[in-house]
Write a protein that binds this DNA or RNA. Structure first.
Lengths: 243, 243
DNA sequence: CTTTTGAATTTTGAATTCAAAATTACTCTA
DNA sequence: TAGAGTAATTTTGAATTCAAAATTCAAAAG
């Protein structure tokens, strides 16, 4: 997960004049096979290449990734600990398939994390950071004008990430990220229509105002409501589609 | 060679009349070795048998637990994903040693989780559950009278767990539990004195009142303040002790 | 006497091997 | 033909083996 801070194995190296080489140190941190495998499969799941419920055959995956079973199995254990896959004893692994209740609860937790994050951010964010978020907001508005949904999504996520960042709490950010990954992997049918889009934009405006005024309670409430609405819309749609 | 938990390889066995056997099903869920190893080591860490910063030698651990390196390494990967240990490439694993900042942040996150949990609990808890918590509270008071600190701690934890339970959110509970484990493993010097103890008790009384009145905001605020105070006391003490 | 270099040992990373369980395929009977 | 029972195959779980990296230790040079 964390790339070990690079270390000096050979002190001589720092004596060379750094003409156009890397200023500090080259790439001392070696990758562990199992880590790259975790990332690979994680991306497969989040990107939807591996869909929910899909069986993960060890032999197949080994061949695909060109590795032996040992590092693969270690990676699977980690992914299971993260909640992205399920492992049944003697039956193998499969991409987690969550019940409606579980998804509902995860959204609720997410709303709580975002709300808390927003509250902390109001106390700690710098004017410069607010400026960056504002510019992202305007870029997002531009995406809206161009009807470019995917870039809108990216800016939207980026803004939320920045607020999270401004909360200055690594543990919170990691929890948020981990949960966000699990939710993203669910790949809900998007049913964005113009009204919803504009409503979301309006809520974002409110968020910015609250952030500017450093009104933690207000930002917190907006973020929570924002996410709960999203949840209810998604859940409604998913259950409708299922019937 | 370790004895695998006995399984039914021969279906005939279940045809015998279950005179004094288990009523429903014996132990169909077979334990995976790696799971029991995770639990073992996790307990070692939380109980303080393995202290923060301690190096985990694979060969030693294998011999101690009587297993081979494969399941042990899988277990270590899981524990690393949980944040209980750190693994440095080609250097092995050690029990996580957290910086003051990290601890401070984890307490802050914990306060947010508890506050959210309390708010949800107020909406969802049943009168029966409130009654149970009340009885635990009285038992806790009795522990206070007897000056029995360890049983006081147990009741205290139990009450918080029940509130969490009443929030009806598995994802939240799991996140809470995981973080709680990491914090518990830090084994802070306890510096409980009578005043603090009585103050904590008083706060608990307030919590109960808020819960009874289903005043989510109030319970939330108390829980958060409660934990932030605890954090500041601990952090002050730890930094004082360090100097 | 300290520091540096390089070989020996230990420890970790990953592949292979072996064993046990589950799944599949097949045969034989009704 | 359907189904039960059994053998064959596949798949998973865990131990062992092999290779690479790190650590230790000792000897030699300054």
């Amino acid at each position: 997960m964390q790339n070990s801070s690079k270390t000096l194995s050979n002190p001589d190296e720092i004596q060379f004049p750094d003409t156009d080489a890397q200023p500090a140190l080259p790439k001392l941190e070696r990758q562990r096979l199992h880590d790259t495998v975790v990332e690979h499969i994680r991306n497969f799941i989040v990107e939807g290449v591996l869909a929910a419920g899909m069986k993960l055959n060890e032999r197949e995956l080994c061949e695909t990734l060109g590795i032996s079973r040992t590092p693969l199995r270690e990676a699977l254990k980690v992914l299971a600990a993260e909640g992205l896959i399920d492992i049944e004893p003697n039956r193998g692994a499969s991409v987690s398939k969550l019940s409606g209740t579980e998804i509902w609860e995860m959204f609720e937790l997410m709303s709580g994390l975002e709300a808390f994050s927003g509250e902390l951010a109001c106390e700690r964010i710098t004017p410069a950071e607010i400026a960056v978020i504002k510019s992202l907001h305007y870029a997002m508005l531009a995406s809206r004008e161009k009807n470019d949904l995917s870039s809108y999504y990216r800016y939207n996520q980026e803004i939320h990430d920045r607020i999270n960042e401004a909360a200055r709490n690594t543990a919170l950010r990691q929890t948020y990220t981990s949960l966000n990954r699990r939710l993203k992997s669910l790949r809900f049918r998007s049913n964005f229509n113009i009204e919803k889009w504009d409503k979301a934009i309006a809520e974002h405006e409110e968020m910015l105002k609250a952030l500017d005024a450093r009104d933690g309670k207000r930002l917190s409430a907006i973020l929570r409501g924002h996410l709960i609405e999203k949840r209810d819309a998604i859940m409604k749609r998913e259950t409708d589609a299922a019937s």
